[in-house]
Every structure is written in C-alpha cells, then in structure tokens.
Design a protein around this nucleic acid. Structure first.
Lengths: 249, 249
DNA sequence: CGTCACTTTGAGGCTAGTCAACGGCGGTGG
DNA sequence: CCACCGCCGTTGACTAGCCTCAAAGTGACG
C-alpha cells in the first residue's frame, strides 16, 4: 500500500541539490557543505516492510541513514523476544545518531511502509566533518534535537497525554498542515512506541473522536481540535506550538 | 551531607590538565584540544541544593556546564507545578546538550548535593569547535551517548527493572567499584526520575535487600549480587556489562 | 528537645494491561 | 465470482501493578 511510486522513482545517484527532502543534513548549510554531503551518498536504498531489517542492533555502526521517503522504525528485541519500538524516522530524519558515541548500533531498523534511505558511510562522514565545521555543527544539532525529544517523551504520562503528543508531533513532522494525517503506522507499533497496549491506543483514539477532537477518515485522521489536544499534551513539553492557556509569545 | 569540602577547595581558575575529573570534554583529546577547552572555562561555580537553580527551562542556552563535583539534576515543571526529573549529572557529565539544537534550555538544573560546575560559554565553544575537530567529535559522541541512554530508559519497564538498571548504572558512573554506592539523591527524586512513587522506590529497594541483592548501610548501598540485578535489568539494555546468561564475548 | 525533611509501612483505588472473541478488509486460490 | 484465510482493528470483562492517601518512624540540626 501507501506510495510504492516513490520507491521505483529516482534510482539514480543522489543529488542533494535537487532532493525534495527538506531538513536533510546536506540541506541546511547552503554552501559547499551540501556538495560535500552529497558526495558521500551512494545510491539510495529501498527498504520494504516485512523484509530484512535495514540494520540490526549489536552490529558496529557502519553508516548513518537519511530517510528519503516512507517511514522507518527503530526497535530492540529483548531476551523474551519482545519488540520495543524506540522511534519513527520520517523523510529528513537521520538514523543511527544514538550509535555514534559507542560505535555500536543500539537498535535495529525496519520499514513501516515502503521507504527509501540515503547511505552515509560513517568513516567518510567523519572525514568530511573535519573540513566542514558547518556540517559538524548540524550533526550536533540534529543529535541534540533527538535527545531533547527522547528526554521529553521519557517522562511518566497518561495514555491520553502520550497519544495527544504523538498525534500533534506526527502532524508537525509530516508537514500535514493541510489537515489530513496519513498514519501508515500500525496501531501495534504506535502502542509499542508509546508504551501502550494496542487496545489502549484504539480506545484512546475513539475517546478523542467522541469528544470531537479528531475524525477518523478513510485515508487517515483529521485533527479537528488541536487546542484540546495541545492542552492535554502540554505536560509532555515537546514544544508543539503553545497550548491555549499560554498567551504570551 | 556528602562532601562540602570539594566546594570550598580549588576556587581558583580551572586548569583541565590537572583536573581530577575524567571523561570531561577537555580530557579526551590529549593534544591541544584540552588546552583550548581549558581556556574556555571561567571560575568553577558552586551550586547548592535548595538554592536558586543553576539554569531555568525556557531561557536561551548561554553555556554548557561540566560537572566537577557533586550531583546535578535536570527537571521540568508542568502547568500543575509537578516536577519531572529528566536526568542526574555526575562529575564529567555535560549539562545542556539537549538544548544545543534549539538554542533554548529544555530543562532546569539544580543541585542534589553540594556541587561544583565548570562553565563553557556556548558561543566561544562553537568557535573553538571550528578549529578543533577532535573536540567537535567528542561533543557529538557525548550527545550521542546521552541520547542512547535516554532512548534505552524511555521504554516500558517494571519498577524492579528500572530500579535495578538505575542502581547498576549509578554504580558504574560513580566508579563505585569498591563496593559502596553513595546515593546522595533523595528517593523522591529517584522515583520522579524513574517514573515511580517514592513509596515504590522504598518498597523495591527493600525487596532487593530481602533477596540478598544489596545491603543498606549508613553511608549508602552495597550491591551484593550484581548478577541478579543485571538479569532483572537486562531488558532495559543500558549496556551495563553482560547479564549472567550471556556468556559470549 | 523540638522541628523538619525524608523514609518506611499499610490500606485502598485506578489506570492500563491481559485475555478472549468478534468484525472488517485485502489477499489468494479454487 | 466467491470461499477461505490472515492481519489488523474493535470491544468487553477481568486482573495486576503501581499510585494515592494516611500515619508512624528515623535522623540531622538548631
């Protein structure tokens, strides 16, 4: 399902200067950094759900992956075989930032929908960083932002708080300002990520719908009362625009 | 209580070359990077529990802080005035890494015991990074490690799992291999950090003691069965040495 | 020796997980 | 074309782990 077209399209060598993805590491510094970054990347790799994982936890970090299309989840599997989703990565996101420090992959990565990633070999990347401080700063910034998000979400919140924060965050990250939130992620994965049973995810969404905060449509969700959701999600503190009670700039 | 002596001692200008703290940003690159880092730092700042916070969430990031002695907690306060502890920072840790990306402090910081921090103005630090790629890489590594830890801890774990992981991690970070774990952090803060009520913290510790996994002594805790704790903490996956069932290297 | 903060202990309640069963939907194959 | 199957989402009943509330015990300090 979803958009298999983006997989077959543009199988050629990456050119970051014409890449549709914003926020990519190579986009930010508009100077020669982008060219240097672009030179790192080999042919984009397609990743399909159900297929072999893109990378597996425990292996040495060989490359960072920049999501070009689709949605990738990272996860760990404990001794009982229980899967724990650590994060969802959307176009423009970098996968593997949590492994730079140790050099060992902390989590596996697999596609949630048909996806495409660009590959940045870590050793070559480190060489480029030596000569391109702007890129280095951008890498620190990206890692720092992901850290801030992880710390915010690691708090103790109710199912409704987590769910509201997740919906608002996904809408923002997907640039779904038009109104329709295409959620291609199975509820089981969402629940696993939010530390909720999939039944709880379902019930919480239904409760939101009953209150008129969102509508469930054929192709996704439509958030109809962001203020209410923001009020609920406020304690999470993900910096998702100001809640209704915060009138100051 | 703890060690107020370290506060009064060495009020003079920092010299990272003789600093007792390992793992500090300036320690790792043994070359000129250390000197450059050292030049950044002004007089170490004492921070006392109960006094004004070191920094407050929402303000622009002006400096990173390297803990020199004691223990600093970072936390947020939501609309209901509820405090949420995000992390504990021990000597050698850097405070503020989660604010680099946005430039806005994501959390407040206050002392848990009498402490001392070194101040690294962020703008000057950024200048130094331009000319010292080794330091830049070390900054990325530190941020990445903290991210990996935050992601590991953000999972859904039982009170015992979280508590065991916390104890082992603190022992490791405090270099308390001699056996005695000096926990100067109030149980309320520990519980807030681990998303547990302080009563649950107390009960869990007691249960561990009853099983012979640790002993409570006057000055702290003594872990007497690390293997058992590691078995319990394994699903958290903090990379705290191998659990007993993992015999492979 | 009283105060205050923190820890300990007990009783009860609530959120969310677990278990079980059903419904919808898209495949696949006869 | 339709029956079959598997995956996912939905719904209900029950359970369990942890929180809340309350109160007593402990230790540091003035």
């Amino acid at each position: 399902m979803s958009r298999p077209d983006v997989i077959t399209a543009s199988r050629a060598r990456v050119d970051c200067l014409v890449c549709p993805v914003q926020n990519c590491l190579g986009r930010c510094p508009s100077d020669d950094g982008a060219a240097a970054w672009s030179a790192l990347l080999a042919t984009p790799v397609p990743v399909m759900p159900g297929a072999a994982p893109l990378v597996s936890a425990g292996n040495p970090l060989q490359s960072l992956y920049s999501v070009r299309a689709g949605c990738i989840k990272t996860y760990t599997v404990d001794a009982e075989g229980q899967e724990r989703v650590r994060g969802f990565y959307l176009p423009g996101d970098l996968i593997g930032l949590d492994a730079i420090g140790s050099g060992i992959l902390q989590s596996s990565a697999a596609a949630v929908e048909p996806s495409q990633v660009c590959v940045a070999p870590i050793e070559e990347l480190r060489q480029v960083l030596h000569t391109h401080p702007r890129l280095a700063r951008h890498l620190v910034d990206q890692t720092s932002r992901e850290l801030a998000m992880a710390l915010a979400l690691s708090g103790d919140f109710s199912a409704e708080q987590r769910m509201a924060a997740f919906l608002l965050q996904m809408e923002q990250r997907l640039h779904a300002r038009d109104g329709l939130l295409r959620l291609s992620i199975p509820q089981r994965d969402i629940g696993n990520y939010l530390r909720l049973a999939n039944e709880t995810v379902c019930r919480t969404l239904k409760r939101f719908a009953q209150r008129g905060w969102l509508r469930s449509e054929t192709r996704g969700l439509r958030l109809t009362d962001r203020c209410a959701l923001q009020d609920v999600a406020e304690p999470v503190g993900l910096g998702l625009s100001a809640p209704s009670w915060a009138l100051a700039a």
